Amino acid sequence: METSQNQQQAVCGKEALDLLNCVAQSPYDQQKCVSLLQSLRQCVLNKKVKKFSLEEQTKENSDSSGTK
């Protein structure tokens, strides 16, 4: 069951990661990043993604709410 959950969380994950890495590169290649942005947008539309989240944030929120 965890495997299917991880796959759901990773929808368009490769495209998002590629875009983030492009933005972080020096020198910055705007044309390449715009192309990667368009790929991510197409994936989001195809997969009907509504929102992205980071797994670490979810874990941190759970940990911090339990300690208060």
Rank of each mutant, 00 (worst) to 15 (best):
Q9G: 06
Q8C: 11
S62H: 12
N6L: 14
L54T: 02
L20P: 02
C33I: 00
L54V: 07
E56K: 10
L19T: 01
E60T: 12
V23E: 10
C43N: 00
E2F: 14
V44H: 01
E56I: 06
L45W: 04
S53T: 13
V44P: 01
S26E: 12
Q57V: 05
E56C: 03
S65D: 03
D63E: 12
G13E: 03
Q25M: 04
V11R: 07
N21R: 11
V11C: 08
Q42D: 07
L20C: 07
K51S: 06
L54E: 11
G66Y: 13
K14L: 11
K50G: 04
N46M: 07
L37Q: 15
Q25Y: 02
Q31P: 03
C33P: 01
Q8H: 10
D63G: 09
L54F: 12
C33N: 01
K50F: 02
S65W: 07
K47L: 05
Q9F: 12
Q7T: 10
C22V: 00
N21F: 03
S62A: 14
Q42W: 04
Q31R: 12
C43S: 00
G66I: 10
L19S: 03
L36P: 00
T67K: 10
V11H: 01
C43W: 00
D63C: 11
G13A: 06
T58P: 07
L19D: 01
